[in-house]
Amino acid sequence: MKLILETDRLLLRELNINDADSFYKLNLNPNVIKFTGDSAFKNMEDAKEFLKNYGDYAENGQ
């Protein structure tokens, strides 16, 4: 886990494959999707694949 920032009440870290369940459920919410510009994941495997291949950290840094 790459930690970016931690306070008493907040832990900010990079996404990882262990976040797939929460990430999948979050993207089922139409109020979230309308602001991301993405479509909802079809299933949990899609969420895992997305997280495995998420390249923004490498491309853009923290």
Rank of each mutant, 00 (worst) to 15 (best):
L10F: 04
K48W: 02
I17T: 08
P30F: 00
R13S: 00
L3W: 03
L12R: 06
L15F: 15
G55C: 01
G37I: 12
L15T: 12
E59H: 02
I17W: 02
N18Y: 06
L11M: 09
G37S: 05
K34R: 15
D21C: 07
T7F: 04
K34S: 05
R13F: 02
L51W: 08
D38C: 13
L10I: 14
Q62D: 14
L3V: 12
E59Q: 10
M1P: 12
L11Q: 10
D56L: 11
L12K: 09
M44T: 09
L3A: 03
E6V: 08
S22F: 15
N16D: 15
N60M: 10
A40M: 09
I4Q: 05
F35N: 13
L26E: 03
L11F: 06
N53E: 04
E6R: 11
L15H: 10
E45I: 01
L10Q: 00
L10R: 07
G55V: 03
F35A: 10
R9G: 02
K25G: 06
D56M: 09
N43E: 04
N18F: 11
N60D: 11
A20P: 03
L10D: 02
E14P: 08
E6M: 05
N43S: 04
F35I: 13
A47D: 01
E49I: 11
K25P: 03
D38L: 14
E14S: 14
R9W: 00
M44K: 15
F23W: 14
Y24R: 10
A58Y: 06
L12I: 15
K34L: 10
D38W: 15
F41S: 03
L51Y: 10
L51S: 06
L5G: 10
L11C: 12
D19T: 06
V32N: 08
K25E: 15
I33A: 02
N53M: 01
D21N: 14
F23K: 06
K34W: 01
N53D: 01
L15G: 07
G55K: 11
R13L: 04
G55T: 08
K48S: 04
T7D: 10
E49A: 14
I33R: 05
N27S: 04
P30I: 00
R13Q: 01
N27R: 14
K2Q: 15
E45D: 15
E59D: 12
N43M: 07
G37V: 03
L26P: 05
K42S: 12
N16K: 05
I17G: 02
G61K: 07
S39P: 09
N29F: 00
N27E: 11
L12P: 05
G55Q: 11
A20C: 08
I4T: 10
D56P: 03
I17H: 09
N27K: 04
M1S: 11
G61T: 01
I4C: 08
D46M: 09
Y57N: 06
S22W: 11
S39Q: 12
G61A: 05
F50D: 06
L5W: 13
L28Y: 04
L12S: 01
R9Y: 02
E45P: 04
N27M: 12
S22T: 15
D8Q: 05
F35S: 12
